[in-house]
């Protein structure tokens, strides 16, 4: 009897992620969402620039790789051209909240019917651990070697809170993957973000607090704890916007 198998939404290409990195979990949750909704054959994913750049090799659906920060614009083009398809982006914090801030804000403001999976690990992983727009105050990185000094480097960007002031988005939620329970909750949120698009409800973004043991200089277990103890208090989990919550509750 098969009790556990790889989702169809993932290819057989071995992931390149570091040991203990939570990208693998989040990839799996996206693939499971495609499987469960039966949408893989009509899904087009947009890979961004950052650690997840090669996600085009990992997802079994059609994949387009976008320039740094431009994934929501590319997804907008794809969705407008293919309104019956499902289009998602998979972006890290540097891509979505720094170089691509304009694309993020305006695709949300337009209420594009796309799904964004936003992986926030508070650091630039691919380039070797520089300060990210979401690095915490005091956090030591390669480009904040004395800890992020908010007087000179400013404060972290809370994406869900920022976007929640807009009328455009349908659904914004922040989740974590630091425990099995959290992973189950993240799965629910990601599934909902995809289902929203299937149902034509509009812009859905799930921010997933993630870990980077390599660049944080921790063991995988320490990294999960650091996420719980430092990131979650700064980036509170929960739903920041759900336009259709009342309607769904009534069902």
């Amino acid at each position: 009897m098969v009790v556990f198998e790889k989702p169809h939404g993932l290819t057989d290409v071995p992931l390149h992620y570091c040991p203990g990195c939570t990208h693998g979990i989040i990839h799996r949750l996206v693939a499971e969402a495609m499987d469960e909704l039966g949408i893989e054959g009509r899904t087009v994913g947009v890979a961004s620039v950052g650690c997840s750049v090669m996600s085009y090799d990992y997802f079994n659906c059609d994949m387009v790789q976008a320039a740094h920060g431009r994934a929501p614009a590319v997804a907008t083009g794809l969705k407008r051209a293919l309104p019956d398809n499902i289009v998602f982006t998979y972006q890290g914090d540097g891509d979505l909240a720094a170089i691509g801030t304009a694309e993020t804000v305006h695709s949300a403001a337009r209420g594009e019917n796309i799904t964004i999976i936003f992986v926030n690990n508070a650091i630039y992983g691919m380039t070797g651990g520089q300060m990210a727009p979401t690095s915490l105050p005091g956090q030591v990185t390669q480009t904040s070697p004395y800890g992020r000094d908010v007087k000179t480097a400013g404060y972290p960007v809370r994406v869900c809170e920022l976007l929640s002031s807009l009328d455009g988005p349908a659904y914004l939620e922040r989740v974590s993957v630091d425990s099995p329970k959290a992973v189950k909750n993240a799965k629910r949120a990601i599934l909902k973000a995809f289902r929203n698009q299937v149902e034509g409800k509009g812009f859905s973004l799930v921010e997933v607090l993630s870990t980077c043991p390599t660049n944080w200089g921790m063991t995988p277990v320490e990294a999960l704890e650091w996420c719980r103890e430092n990131m979650v208090p700064y980036y509170p989990l929960g739903v920041y916007k759900d336009k259709y919550a009342d309607e769904e509750a009534a069902k």
């Binding site: 087009v44 431009r70 614009a73 997804a75 083009g77 794809l78 051209a81």
Partner: peptide, 10 residues
Amino acid sequence: NMVYGVASAG
């Protein structure tokens, strides 16, 4: 980049 998206869709 929207052009890039539409063009990717053919």
